[in-house]
């Protein structure tokens, strides 16, 4: 396997001036990214998450050559992003959920045609890629509509197409599903899953929507205060942060005394005691057996740990 993205000790500092008197200002350097080491292999789908202000977008902008790093080494597709930005631009596609790379005044079709010229893509390759995107992202109904008249969901499908038309080796997605409705999110996720499954495009996805990560990314990098605090699979994240399964028991009648099993904590009681929710540190067998012995157990449900909860706990512990 070869690394398409490699960073060592990547740093970005911003200088902030604060008042220190009537006329005096003091300068403070704030590290938005503070020594990030990252190695992403070709074809990987990487989720890059963190709370607001953690340094996700700053990292992405350094990887794409938009921001100058304050320190460390970075190579993407074999290029140093800032000094070789124009050459790197051919090998990467970028979608910033809150920015547009399409020409606001022109129909989507003309934006795509212009991108073909800018990236110097042979017409046959361009046509093949566009046909695939048109079919999967259902672009045809609004292909001749000026971008300024598109809905957010339509525009985002156009943005993703625009980022892929030149066949980039790496696709950077910065909150691609932000503000989208459920149907548009599903459409975008399904398309990105297909892009990832083909294995010829490395995808780096930054998002606050953890359903994107669950659906698309095997590997998850969590960044906080500019530092990587987790780099591994989702399962490893659950294991590391002690994610707990839950058992929800529906009873025919409330119990005089709740069932007590070591490693199972009663988390909540609803319906006057008819529904009990336990959080578990161990397999649920002993708890379920104990509940069954009460003689009033009607139904039981086991809930797997929720990524939202794990990440919320991670962010709160900052």
């Amino acid at each position: 396997m070869s690394a398409v993205i490699e960073t060592r000790g990547l740093r970005k500092e911003f200088v902030v001036r604060k008042r220190a008197g009537r006329f005096r200002r003091t300068r403070h350097a704030i590290a938005a990214v503070d020594g990030v080491d990252l190695r992403v292999e070709a074809g990987e789908m990487l989720g890059y998450i963190g709370p607001n202000g953690a340094g996700k977008s700053t990292t992405l902008k350094m990887l794409t050559g938009v921001l100058h790093p304050s320190g460390g080494d970075v190579r993407v597709c074999g290029f140093e992003p800032v000094p070789q930005r124009v050459r790197l631009a051919r090998g990467i596609g970028v979608v910033f959920g809150q920015r547009s790379q399409l020409w606001w005044d022109l129909p989507l079709r003309e934006s795509f045609d212009l991108l073909r010229h800018i990236y110097r893509v042979p017409p046959s390759e361009h046509a093949a890629r566009l046909a695939r995107c048109r079919s999967m992202l259902e672009l045809d109904p609004f292909l001749d509509t000026p971008v300024r008249q598109l809905s957010l969901g339509q525009r985002m499908r156009g943005e993703i197409t625009a980022a892929l038309l030149h066949g980039p080796a790496v696709l950077f997605l910065d909150e691609p599903t932000i503000g989208l409705d459920v149907v548009s999110k599903q459409s975008v996720r399904a398309f990105l899953a297909e892009v990832g499954a083909r294995g010829d495009t490395t995808v780096v996805l930054t998002t606050h929507d953890l359903a994107d990560i669950q659906r698309l990314c095997e590997r998850l990098v969590v960044i906080d205060h500019g530092r990587v605090v987790h780099d591994g699979t989702l399962a490893a994240l659950h294991a590391r942060y002690g994610s707990r399964r839950r058992v929800v028991a529906d009873l025919d009648a409330p119990l005089d005394r709740p069932v007590a099993v070591p490693g199972a904590d009663l988390e909540s009681t609803e319906g006057g005691g008819a529904r009990l929710t336990y959080a578990l540190d161990q397999p649920p067998g002993a708890l379920i057996a104990a509940l069954a012995q009460t003689g009033v157990l009607r139904d039981v449900k086991i809930e797997e740990p929720d990524i939202e909860e794990v990440v919320a706990r991670l962010y709160k512990d900052r």
Binding site: G65, S100, Q101, I118
Partner: peptide, 13 residues
């Protein structure tokens, strides 16, 4: 507004 970022991401100065 930050939209200039897309100008920098194209393979043209």
């Amino acid at each position: 507004t930050g939209d200039a970022v897309t100008d920098l991401l194209r393979p043209v100065h």
